[in-house]
């Protein structure tokens, strides 16, 4: 996993609530068991005109002012639905490094953490405020994300009201999540190192009681 470095990036607003993982990547666009080749299928139902790969000029990601976007400003319950981790892989391959939303589908959020895509929960008003400012001049009104400092700030020239809103917000992650993202630590290695003998001891007790769960 790649460590999450500080980022100043173009943000694209997609405020619609309940954008599900089928919308992020339709099942038909998942053609191989690897994590590559998925960006083409990102938001395929919306990004292309019906029946082909011709870009739909009306879809926000296709608008030239959002070219190179790295931050997605989502709506409530973003990433709900299917557990498909390919939704996260597709977002990353397309170039996204962070998603900011008032709330996430549980599994989607955990998939983000496990792959180094930063999920940030923020109050709906803060997300809407950022979106409003970003929309004015997407290529200039960028967001600066510093995970180490826990901050999301607008790039220079932002109005005072937005500065105030964002100064009050903090990136909420638990310590492990923050460490994993900052250092790109593999979660399996972390668990095995941390649990050590505790796991064997727990397992012995547990399987003593629930004999039918033994590996035999």
């Amino acid at each position: 996993m790649t460590p999450f470095e500080p980022l100043t990036g173009i943000a694209v607003p997609m405020p619609q609530p309940n954008i599900d993982t089928d919308a992020i990547i339709p099942s038909r666009a998942i053609r191989g068991i690897g994590r590559e080749g998925l960006a083409e299928g990102l938001f395929a139902n919306w990004r292309y005109l019906p029946g082909g790969l011709e870009l739909n000029p009306g879809f926000v990601l296709n608008r030239p002012e959002y070219a190179g976007a790295q931050i997605l400003l989502g709506g409530a319950n973003f990433g709900c639905g299917s557990s498909r981790e390919q939704a996260v892989w597709a977002l990353q391959e397309f170039g996204f490094r962070a998603v900011i939303a008032p709330g996430f589908g549980d599994i989607f959020r955990r998939n983000c953490i496990n792959n180094g895509l930063l999920p940030v929960v923020m109050p709906a008003e803060a997300v809407t405020a950022m979106a409003r400012w970003v929309e004015e001049k997407p290529q200039w009104h960028k967001l600066r994300i510093n995970l180490q400092a826990g901050s999301i700030l607008p790039s220079e020239g932002c109005p005072a009201w937005l500065g105030e809103t964002l100064h009050k917000t903090r990136i909420e992650l638990d310590d492990d999540e923050r460490e994993m993202l900052l250092r790109g630590i593999d979660p399996i290695d972390l668990t095995l190192r941390r649990l050590g003998d505790d796991l064997d001891e727990f397992e012995k007790r547990h399987l003593g009681k629930y004999w039918y769960l033994r590996n035999s």
């Binding site: 557990s83 498909r84 981790e85 599994i107 955990r110 998939n111 496990n114 792959n115 979660p187």
Partner: peptide
């Protein structure tokens, strides 16, 4: 769960 969690 997701795929990474399944692996875990």
């Amino acid at each position: 769960i997701g795929i990474s969690e399944a692996e875990h």
